[in-house]
Design a protein around this nucleic acid. Structure first.
Lengths: 229, 229
DNA sequence: ACACTTAGTGTATCAAAAACACGTAAAGGA
DNA sequence: TCCTTTACGTGTTTTTGATACACTAAGTGT
């Protein structure tokens, strides 16, 4: 369906950096491009915005179409607008980042993509377009935001141990954290629910399970409370 | 110069929230629209992105064209992409915010605008499009960023007194700051140059003038130093 | 010279962050 | 069954940074 406009305009796309947490690494989901340009290269999943849908909706749609993921944490990152970031023409891309718990979600490759795979964020192949810049920015944003917003839970299963939670922060922030101080602090915030369950199937003393109390957090937030690690 | 594309695409604009600091208020520069839609309404200056120019460059160009400002601090804020934010068609806007020192810059109104004027950020008229949302977000961003990045200086003349600087933070953060603690902290960062000049033409003891040492700050920043108020 | 206005300066108290080590529970193998 | 292995769970002290607070100095105008 070709269209005519009075003045030329750049094309508009969305791209999603999708983070997942492995046992001891932060991973990012990439797709291998099945079409030109950059056919065969790995890239961040994304696609064109169609007029009439909000840019946020476009990001969610592409996320679902290309990876099957839905109901995940998704937030706008930055808009990349250099005219030569795409060899075909001026394509402006609104980048998002998403957080999901790696275990449980099976990833399916889509039409435009040959395959999809998780890579360690510190060991990614050469990427198409300016996607290395986007990834780097997403990583920095995640590192910054995780300190003062309880978004880390999105990377864990609904029930988790305090050790898992601590490890998450250690992996993202790339520095060790003192166990006792961490537990003291996170528990003193009173946004975790201590469950009557413990870990199953581990070859050592089982740890207690907790879950994030989002409702409680939102209420505290309204009253001026701020989550800070 | 009409153009044809294979698929429809949203239009793309940039908008700039321009902050300036008055003696005791934070102000924002608005223009009165001279054309439809929202003719006669006040709005944030902005305009269409032309293909081939980076979105950042488009923001700078519009800033210059509509207000005559150049060489100011300008940073991307957020991209607003709701399909019904413009009554004509789907127009996606990349919003920026700019900081400038109010005194010194004369503002000229431009072709598309009837006039331009500074408004207190807490007393703006009804705005065109979703510009109230953009302004609110810009304000929150400024309040957040000013705490951990030395961008406040952009709102002051190159030479300023510590009292002016303190007042700046009090105005932006909307809360009083203790004078001695503030001076202790800001001076201990060692990013200010104490000049051999003092204030002129005041009817009381003249204060010493300082300037921001950007070079020094950048070096400290590299070494892991972080500016925090 | 006196009144008025803002500049400039130090210390004591309080709160939060950092550092730090060992007994306990559960599973697995000898 | 007992010994080994592995991760769990817990308090106190020290250090650091944040907060609270009041007077003298300098310059202007009357």
């Amino acid at each position: 369906m070709p269209v005519k406009y009075k003045y030329p305009r750049p094309a508009l796309t969305v791209d999603c950096v999708i983070f997942g947490l492995d046992d001891d690494e932060l991973k990012v989901l990439l797709i291998e491009r099945g079409i030109e340009p950059f056919e065969g290269k790995w890239a961040i999943p994304g696609g064109f915005v169609v007029p009439g849908e909000s840019v946020d909706a476009a990001a969610r749609r592409e996320l679902l179409e290309e990876t099957g993921l839905k109901n995940v944490f998704l937030e706008q990152l930055y808009t990349f607008g250099d005219p030569d970031r795409d060899p075909r023409e001026h394509v402006v891309s609104v980048a998002y980042y998403a957080l999901t718990n790696l275990a449980g979600h099976e990833i399916k490759a889509d039409t435009d993509a040959r395959s999809a795979a998780w890579f360690s964020v510190h060991d990614v192949p050469e990427l198409a377009f300016d996607h290395d810049k986007i990834l780097e920015m997403a990583l920095r944003r995640l590192q910054g935001k995780v300190r003062y917003q309880p978004i880390g839970f999105e990377l864990l299963p609904p029930k988790f141990t305090l050790t898992q939670l601590q490890k998450l922060y250690e992996i993202i922030l790339e520095k060790p954290i003192d166990k006792r101080n961490f537990r003291k602090k996170i528990l003193s915030m009173e946004v975790l629910i201590e469950l009557d369950e413990i870990q199953q199937g581990v070859a050592h003393r089982a740890a207690r399970l907790y879950s994030f109390n989002e409702k409680e957090y939102r209420q505290k937030e309204k009253k001026g409370f701020s989550f800070e690690l």
